Simulated scan of single mutants.
Amino acid sequence: MDIYSLPDYRNFEHKINEKKTHLFILKNRTGMQVAFTDYGARIVSILVPDKFGNLRDVVLGFNSIHEYLQADEQYHGATIGRFANRIANGQFHLDGKKYTLPRNNGSNCLHGGPTGFHSKVWDRRTSFKKKIEFCYVSPDGEEGFPGNLKTTVSYELTEENEIIIKYKAETDKKTVVNLTNHAYFNLDGEGQGDVLNHILHFPSDHFLPIDESQIPLDNEASVDGTAFDFRSPKKISEDIDKDESQLKHGNGYDHTFVNHQPISQVAASAYSPDSGIRLEVFTTEPGIQLYTGNFLTDKDTGKSGRKYSSRSAFCFETQHYPDSPNHPQFPSVVLEPSQILESETIYKFSIKKEI
Score class of each variant (00 low, 15 high):
residue 179 L to Y: 02
residue 144 G to K: 11
residue 122 W to R: 12
residue 121 V to T: 01
residue 133 E to V: 01
residue 157 L to Y: 15
residue 135 C to A: 06
residue 156 E to I: 15
residue 125 R to P: 03
residue 136 Y to A: 15
residue 121 V to A: 00
residue 151 T to W: 01
residue 82 R to V: 11
residue 161 N to W: 04
residue 152 T to A: 04
residue 135 C to L: 05
residue 111 H to T: 00
residue 120 K to I: 09
residue 150 K to R: 13
residue 123 D to P: 14
residue 154 S to C: 01
residue 96 G to D: 07
residue 153 V to Q: 15
residue 94 L to I: 13
residue 172 D to S: 01
residue 175 T to M: 07
residue 85 N to M: 04
residue 172 D to I: 07
residue 181 N to H: 13
residue 100 T to E: 07
residue 109 C to W: 08
residue 126 T to R: 07
residue 99 Y to P: 10
residue 178 N to F: 11
residue 138 S to W: 13
residue 130 K to F: 08
residue 136 Y to S: 07
residue 100 T to G: 04
residue 122 W to E: 07
residue 82 R to C: 15
residue 88 A to C: 12
residue 144 G to S: 00
residue 112 G to L: 13
residue 146 P to V: 05
residue 126 T to I: 06
residue 107 S to H: 09
residue 141 G to L: 07
residue 159 E to S: 11
residue 157 L to W: 07
residue 92 F to M: 06
residue 91 Q to M: 03
residue 173 K to R: 15
residue 132 I to T: 11
residue 172 D to N: 08
residue 178 N to D: 14
residue 108 N to W: 00
residue 151 T to Q: 02
residue 142 E to H: 09
residue 108 N to H: 10
residue 115 T to W: 02
residue 119 S to I: 03
residue 87 I to K: 01
residue 123 D to F: 00
residue 128 F to D: 10
residue 100 T to W: 08
residue 163 I to Q: 05
residue 93 H to P: 03
residue 90 G to M: 15
residue 162 E to V: 11
residue 118 H to A: 03
residue 131 K to N: 01
residue 106 G to Q: 14
residue 126 T to L: 02
residue 176 V to Q: 04
residue 146 P to I: 06
residue 95 D to R: 09
residue 179 L to E: 07
residue 137 V to C: 05
residue 130 K to N: 14
residue 161 N to R: 08
residue 171 T to E: 11
residue 127 S to N: 10
residue 169 A to K: 02
residue 173 K to Q: 08
residue 93 H to Y: 12
residue 171 T to L: 14
residue 168 K to P: 10
residue 96 G to V: 01
residue 147 G to W: 13
residue 126 T to V: 03
residue 146 P to M: 10
residue 128 F to L: 13
residue 139 P to C: 12
residue 148 N to T: 04
residue 99 Y to T: 08
residue 82 R to W: 01
residue 179 L to M: 06
residue 120 K to F: 12
residue 171 T to A: 07
residue 115 T to K: 02
residue 125 R to T: 12
residue 105 N to C: 03
residue 84 A to D: 14
residue 100 T to Q: 13
residue 158 T to D: 07
residue 95 D to T: 10
residue 117 F to S: 00
residue 176 V to A: 02
residue 140 D to N: 14
residue 175 T to E: 14
residue 177 V to E: 14
residue 121 V to K: 02
residue 145 F to Y: 10
residue 178 N to Q: 05
residue 103 R to T: 08
residue 156 E to G: 03
residue 103 R to V: 12
residue 172 D to F: 06
residue 168 K to W: 11
residue 81 G to M: 04
residue 116 G to R: 14
residue 148 N to W: 11
residue 114 P to Y: 02
residue 127 S to K: 01
residue 142 E to C: 09
residue 101 L to S: 01
residue 135 C to N: 12
residue 174 K to G: 05
residue 181 N to K: 13
residue 164 I to W: 06
residue 87 I to D: 00
residue 164 I to N: 00
residue 106 G to V: 01
residue 142 E to L: 09
residue 152 T to C: 05
residue 102 P to M: 13
residue 134 F to M: 04
residue 175 T to K: 06
residue 96 G to R: 12
residue 101 L to P: 00
residue 181 N to L: 13
residue 84 A to H: 06
residue 118 H to R: 05
residue 119 S to W: 03
residue 103 R to D: 15
residue 120 K to L: 08
residue 102 P to I: 03
residue 134 F to G: 00
residue 97 K to R: 12
